[in-house]
């Protein structure tokens, strides 16, 4: 099936949605010496993908499913739709992000993404999310995929892909790693990105309470340590 350009736009790192200033924990990990070179970066990306990447992808898929069921903004599926459904997903996202810094980063990126996609594709489903002053990023991504005609599987793919490309780009900028070598590592990770996206998409129609909750203790600690650093080049 041909890749729709509207979805490619959402996956593009040039989308003006604030992603360039977030390292996904890479900056504090590098500061702590946990990521120094290509092998340690690859291990970091694998770990992030399998944990917060899986959770974000699953939340995006669930949000996409929710938005698709309530397209038109009338909450036509009787009670689940609209604001109440988003509140449930918002609380389920919070419960999977113990780090306050992590929650703030997710909400800051969600707010930026929502601004961009409302400009690109105005839609009542996005207006419903705007009722939250800063909705979580995976929820906005899922809604954006839905309003551009994509499926929960598409949302999961873009979510999982972004979970590794963001920190990889930050590593190139912070550590001066060879961008070609980093992209070789990303290419080698591609099958695992697809596998995580497939697992995440499988949860799109289920009960939001049962969504994956894979945690990354080191990322949580880094997220908080980052706020104490005297010098921060990335927001998160």
């Amino acid at each position: 099936m041909a890749l729709p350009a509207s979805l490619l736009l959402l996956a593009d790192s040039r989308l003006p949605a604030g992603g360039h200033a977030h390292s996904g924990g890479l900056e504090p990990a590098a500061e702590a010496g946990a990521v120094t070179d290509l092998p340690t970066l690859t291990a970091f990306l694998r770990g992030r993908l399998a944990t917060t990447g899986l959770v974000a992808a699953a939340l995006s898929a669930a949000a996409c499913g929710h938005a698709a069921r309530t397209r038109g903004g009338d909450g036509g599926d009787g009670g689940l739709g609209g604001h109440e459904g988003w509140s449930v997903l918002d609380a389920e996202t919070d419960a999977r992000m113990p780090s306050p810094a992590g929650r703030r980063a997710s909400r800051a990126q969600g707010r930026s993404l929502l601004r961009a996609v409302r400009e690109m594709s105005p839609h009542p489903a996005l207006d419903a999310l705007a009722a939250f002053s800063a909705p979580h990023h995976p929820l906005v991504l899922g809604a954006a995929v839905a309003v551009t005609g994509g499926s929960p599987a598409d949302a999961a793919s873009i979510g999982a892909y972004g979970a590794v490309t963001g920190p990889a780009s930050a590593a190139v900028r912070l550590l001066g790693l060879d961008p070609l070598a980093v992209h070789r590592a990303l290419a080698e990770l591609a099958p695992q990105v697809d596998a995580v996206a497939a697992e995440a998409a499988g949860h799109a129609r289920g009960d939001p309470r049962d969504l994956p909750a894979a945690s990354a203790p080191a990322l949580d600690i880094f997220a908080e340590l980052h706020l104490q650093a005297n010098l921060r080049l990335f927001e998160s």
Binding site: P16, H20, A21, A108, S112, R115, L233, E235
Partner: peptide, 21 residues
Amino acid sequence: AVRTGCCPHTAIRDDISANLD
């Protein structure tokens, strides 16, 4: 304070969202 992820020009020109926020 806005952090620019090592790309100060990006934050004021290509992707202004953090600054707008």
